[in-house]
């Protein structure tokens, strides 16, 4: 994939994660989890939103090299994200997969 396609793929997936984690089905399931998991989810949602805002405003030149180097991990991560978001009630699994995807995104753009 060309760097701009990888960037668009990443932005699209981040948007899907952010919006998925704001859906009533996810939030209802989250309500049932212990406070530490709810805390983890809030911190993760913050990182997703930061990544989304920064990627939307970023210049491609600043991301090009890292996008190319991380192509395989990004596409694999995006596929995993796509799969896990199909069932928003599997909250803990979502947290785990999103955490992994953010680990890759965090090597492209500074999250915090």
């Amino acid at each position: 994939m060309a760097p701009y396609e990888l960037r668009n793929l990443t932005i699209r997936q981040l948007g899907k994660i952010r919006n998925g984690m704001a859906k009533p089905a996810y939030l209802l399931s989250l309500d049932k989890l212990p406070p530490e998991k709810q805390h983890e989810s809030a911190l993760l949602q913050h990182q997703v939103q930061m990544a989304l805002l920064k990627m939307r405003a970023a210049e491609l030149d600043d991301l090009r090299d890292q996008l190319t180097v991380l192509e395989a991990e990004l596409t694999a991560g995006a596929t995993q994200v796509e799969g896990v978001l199909a069932d928003l009630q599997k909250t803990e699994e979502i947290l785990r997969v999103v955490n992994g995807f953010l680990g890759v995104v965090g090597r492209i753009i500074t999250l915090v």
Binding site: A22, Q38, S41, A42, Q45
Partner: peptide, 8 residues
Amino acid sequence: LLLKEREH
């Protein structure tokens, strides 16, 4: 989103 996260 901030307000939602803030709770936790």
